[in-house]
Simulated scan of single mutants.
Amino acid sequence: MAITLSKGQRIDLTKTNPGLTKAVIGLGWDINHYDGGSSFDLDASAFLADESGNVQNDQEFVFYNNLQDPSGAVEHTGDNRTGEGEGDDEQLTVNFSQVPSHVEKVAITVTIHDAEGRNQNFGQVSNAFVRVLNPETNEELIRYDLGEDFSIETAVVVCELYRHNGEWKFSAVGSGFSGGLAALCRNFGLEV
C-alpha cells in the first residue's frame, strides 16, 4: 500500500524499503476542458543537483532531448505529447547506486511546452500526481497528488529525491514557477 504525502512532507525511501536500488518515478496529469486552439504538451524532467542546488553541466539535466545522464543513473523513458489515457503520462527511472557522488538531489519537474506561445498554465491542469514505484515488484511505494494550487505557473518542481546519511529520501515539493523550462534551468544554475 502506497504512502500518500502532502506538500512539504518528506519520507525515507531506501531505508524503509531495504534492497531498493532503483525506482520508477511516474508522473500524470489531466487537462481541464477548454478550447484554447492548441493542444497541451507537458514534459517531465530531472535535474541532478549538487549540495548547493546547482546542476554542474547540461548533461545532468535529463529531459525529452537528453534521455539519460552520463552516469546512467537517471533515464527518461520518452516524451508523451498528448497525456491521453490512464496511469502515468511520463516516467523516469532512477538507479540510486549509479548516482554520481557530487549529486545530492534529483529534482523532478514538469513543464508545459511552449506555454507562453499557447497561452497555457498549470491552472488549466488537474489531477497532477507523482508516484514512486519499485520496478522489481511494480508496487507503488509513495504517491503525492499535487492538488489545484496553481494558476499562472508554467513549470512545477514536483518532488525531490535526496541523499541523507547514506540513504535516499523523498520530498513532496509542489513549487510552481512562471517562465517555463528556462526559469527552471536558471533556478538550477544552467544557462539558457
Rank of each mutant, 00 (worst) to 15 (best):
E75R: 08
N80C: 04
R143L: 12
H164Y: 03
E51D: 15
Q68A: 08
I112L: 11
L184C: 10
I152M: 12
Q120I: 12
G72V: 01
E104M: 07
Q98Y: 14
A23M: 02
L146A: 03
V192E: 14
E90D: 06
A46Y: 10
A73W: 04
L13V: 09
P70G: 08
S97C: 05
V157I: 14
D58V: 11
L27E: 11
A49T: 10
T14H: 11
S151R: 09
D58C: 05
S52D: 15
G166M: 10
A128R: 06
N121A: 14
Q68D: 00
H76I: 09
S38T: 09
N80H: 15
F188W: 02
G26D: 11
G8D: 11
V94N: 02
V132Q: 15
F61G: 14
F63P: 04
S45L: 07
R81S: 12
K15R: 13
T16M: 05
A172H: 06
D88K: 02
L67N: 08
V62Y: 04
R131T: 00
G78Q: 12
L5E: 06
G176L: 08
R118D: 15
K22I: 01
L13I: 05
L5W: 08
Q68T: 02
Q56K: 04
T16L: 12
V192T: 14
I25M: 00
L20F: 07
T111C: 08
G166A: 01
R163Q: 15
C159P: 10
I112E: 03
R81G: 06
F177C: 04
E139A: 07
Q68Y: 11
N121S: 15
A107W: 01
L190N: 14
